[in-house]
């Protein structure tokens, strides 16, 4: 296949508009910095910062505003400015999933999105998944299957699992393996997490 051929470095300078659109569609978090791309997009890009700018986020059904530098990530804004500390900072570069939140209903790594780019999106954090003082069914299942040890990766896993089970209420073992492989746990709680998803599917409880 043509795409599998190794590319010379200079190939990268000629990003086509189609490639750019493909890249953009992958996710809002992909920073595109090539000057030629900006030209190709032919859009006015307002300059923000340096220095603090007003930022308003729609989080858990509330409007939250703060003066933040454009470089502040969604994760840091949630944790440091709004004291929503359920999403955790672990790798801080979109690899481990401990910071997972929902953006317009989709799970995203909040450490890989700038707060300024998350404006106008609906953000849902682990704090809003709990029903008042009681637990959501997925949270209850994590407790019941002992799918947590130190608990640091747990909120991220629960946001991911909640969304996964909404999309696939009766996943197969294979679907669980792939659907829940975007988060890391160091204590080794995967067996309990698989059991949570399998039990939801009406499968055999472990």
């Amino acid at each position: 296949m043509a795409d599998d051929r190794p590319r010379k470095p200079e190939d990268n300078s000629g990003v086509t508009r189609r490639d750019f659109m493909k890249v953009s569609a992958v996710g809002v978090a992909v920073p595109v910095v090539l000057g030629s791309v900006m030209d190709a997009a032919a859009e006015e890009v307002p300059i923000q910062g340096p220095g603090k700018v007003p930022i308003t986020l729609q989080v858990n059904g509330k409007k939250l505003s703060a003066q933040l530098e454009p470089r502040v990530t969604l994760l840091d804004a949630l944790r440091d400015n709004f004291d929503l500390t359920g999403a955790k900072r672990v790798c801080d570069r979109g690899a481990c999933g401990a910071c997972t939140v929902l953006m317009d209903g989709k799970p995203v790594y909040a450490c890989a999105i700038l707060a300024i780019d998350a404006q106008g999106r609906m953000i849902t954090t682990i704090e809003a998944l709990a029903e008042g003082d009681s637990l959501s069914p997925v949270m209850q299942a994590f407790v019941a299957h002992d799918a947590q040890q130190c608990g640091f990766c747990t909120p991220g896993f629960i946001v991911t699992t909640t969304n996964f089970l909404q999309k696939q209420p009766a996943p197969t073992a294979e679907e669980i393996r792939h659907g829940l492989s975007g988060n890391f746990c160091r204590c080794g709680t995967y067996d309990g997490i698989r059991a949570v998803a399998l039990a939801h599917a009406g499968g055999k409880q472990s």
């Binding site: 500390t85 359920g86 999403a87 682990i126 949270m139 209850q140 407790v143 947590q148 608990g151 629960i158």
Partner: peptide
């Protein structure tokens, strides 16, 4: 079942971080 399970799974458990 661990007694601190609910605080961890709800995201309410506070860590040093």
């Amino acid at each position: 079942l661990r007694i601190d399970g609910p605080s961890k799974s709800s995201g309410r458990a506070k860590y040093t971080y």
